[in-house]
């Protein structure tokens, strides 16, 4: 554990809880992509199956349980409790275009051919692109609510902070996992355009709207 990873995890946690609380408080999931949330639920499920097979620390286990619960809680709110507020007309990204290639890639580039390892690798590849339906939705509607922008910024910052963590780990403990590092870089690059808009608009008190 180092400061970059801790900040990354806290940023990730903040993003997930921010989204959950926003939907709960406003009684609405307008502007949120249910498809991205489905992908994140798949990501957490396939990655954290190791809750039952490999113990790392209390911290890791608790965080995994929180991420899983919050993710399924978000799905429950979006597709059941506040379903009428779900804006499915604008959530039109075809997620099979992400699910299938990520699955194929996890069989092609993987550290070891075991079920758990392929599932873990799949979760890494899918996470890298899971935000695309949400970004697509923002581009279709041409705007995002300020809290949705904060959510996206926190979620994007998490993997960027993990990149600093991997650089630190490379020098301090020879850690080098190219699968997660390259996927993490791709994931962070996808947010760059949004980061620019967030810094130039939202931080100056303006609503995030596209020209």
């Amino acid at each position: 554990m180092n400061i970059f990873r801790l900040c990354g995890d806290l940023s990730h946690l903040l993003a997930i809880l921010l989204l959950l609380v926003k939907i709960w408080k406003t009684r609405s999931c307008a502007g949120i992509s249910g498809k991205s949330q489905i992908l994140f639920a798949i990501v957490y499920t396939t990655r954290y199956l190791d809750l039952f097979t490999s113990f790392v620390s209390i911290y890791n286990s608790v965080m995994k349980i929180v991420f899983l619960s919050a993710s399924y809680g978000t799905l429950y709110l979006m597709f059941y409790k506040f379903k009428p507020t779900y804006d499915h007309n604008h959530d039109s990204f075809r997620i099979l275009y992400l699910i299938v290639p990520a699955l194929v890639l996890s069989f092609v580039i993987v550290h070891a051919y075991t079920l758990m390892e392929v599932l873990w690798t799949y979760s890494i590849y899918l996470e890298a692109v899971a935000i695309m339906p949400q970004l697509f939705m923002v581009s279709r509607t041409g705007e995002a609510e300020t809290i949705t922008s904060h959510y996206l910024f926190a979620l994007g910052s998490y993997r960027a902070l993990y990149i600093l963590n991997w650089i630190y780990r490379y020098y301090t403990e020879d850690f080098l996992d190219l699968i997660v590092i390259i996927a993490g870089i791709v994931q962070t690059i996808l947010y760059c355009d949004f980061f620019y808009l967030y810094i130039t608009k939202v931080l100056k008190g303006k609503r995030l709207s596209l020209p």
Binding site: R5, V56, K64, H111, W120, V180
Partner: peptide, 10 residues
């Protein structure tokens, strides 16, 4: 190797 398969991150 072995170390990499024990995923210790989230």
């Amino acid at each position: 190797g072995e170390a990499i398969l024990k995923h210790d991150e989230l």
